[in-house]
Amino acid sequence: MRRLGDLEAEIMDRLWRWGRPATVREIVDDINHVRPVAYTTVMTVADILHRKGLLRREKAGRAWLYEPERSREEYTAALMQDALGNTEDRKAALQRFVEHMSPEDVSALDAALRAMGRVPGSAEEPGAPS
């Protein structure tokens, strides 16, 4: 299963980079520059991606032309939204280094930093464990 997941990423990566619809044959040939992969495997995974709604396809002659449904940037933005969003029920799902804050809170942070005589880039002090 791990291999299938990697292959999904490889296929998506190529289609995003090319920025145009491509056939399974083109994708297989390109991956084969790096490592051997069977045509049927790529076809199966492309079909999975299509069913997951990540790729759309249209018939061109006898082959399918595949194309990403959305751009890489759009998916990345969706992930960032998911990660930084202010949903209370996300608390247990993923843990953020710092919560999204209001401007007042950010300036409170700044004040706290300055009150301690620290500014970014100031002299290091040994980080003694508590």
Binding site: N86, V98, H100, D105, P120, G127
Partner: peptide, 26 residues
């Protein structure tokens, strides 16, 4: 170091577009 962690906290928090809707983490 304490400095590295504290300044990282500030850098990440201040780099995110401030939003009035997010008071919870402050």
């Amino acid at each position: 170091s304490r400095d590295a962690l504290a300044t990282a906290l500030y850098a990440v928090a201040s780099g995110q577009a401030p939003d009035m809707a997010f008071a919870a983490g402050g």
